[in-house]
């Protein structure tokens, strides 16, 4: 995979998270789509592949672990990064055991997430 634009999906039921991450991550020229509803995000994923999915863990309709399982069931090339304010090591280890690429706890700076996305992009290029 060459150095092309990444397609990144951000799922968080707090509107402000998507808004802030979209503006911060778009600065590097990647394509960012944000969703507050996990179900709608999965529907979009069925129609359009994404390189990276950044998802909150705790959401009402569908939780991040379920999204992780569904995303990886559809494409194990997609890198899933979990974000949450309520992280515990048990939860993070569970997500990683299920195939999550990495885990980041709120509050964080977009640069912290960007560093993880860069690592994921490197992995994608290797494949």
């Amino acid at each position: 995979m060459e150095n092309r634009q990444l397609r990144i999906m951000v799922i968080d039921d707090e509107q402000i998270v998507g808004k802030r991450l979209k503006s911060a991550l778009e600065k590097t020229g990647d394509i960012i789509e944000t969703f507050e509803d996990g179900v709608k995000a999965l529907e979009r994923l069925n129609n359009h592949p994404f390189d990276i999915v950044v998802t909150d863990i705790r959401m009402d309709e569908i939780d991040g672990i379920e999204i992780l399982e569904k995303v990886l069931a559809k494409s194990n090339q997609t890198k899933v990064i979990m974000i949450t304010g309520y992280a515990t090591v048990e939860m993070a280890r569970e997500a990683l055991a299920k195939g999550a690429f990495d885990f980041i706890a709120k509050p964080f700076k977009p640069n912290d997430l960007r560093a993880i996305i860069d690592k994921a992009a490197k992995e994608l290029r290797k494949n």
Binding site: D12, R20, K106
Partner: peptide
């Protein structure tokens, strides 16, 4: 303030 846990860089 409401930032959803996303800080400034």
């Amino acid at each position: 303030e409401a930032n959803g846990g996303i800080l400034d860089d």
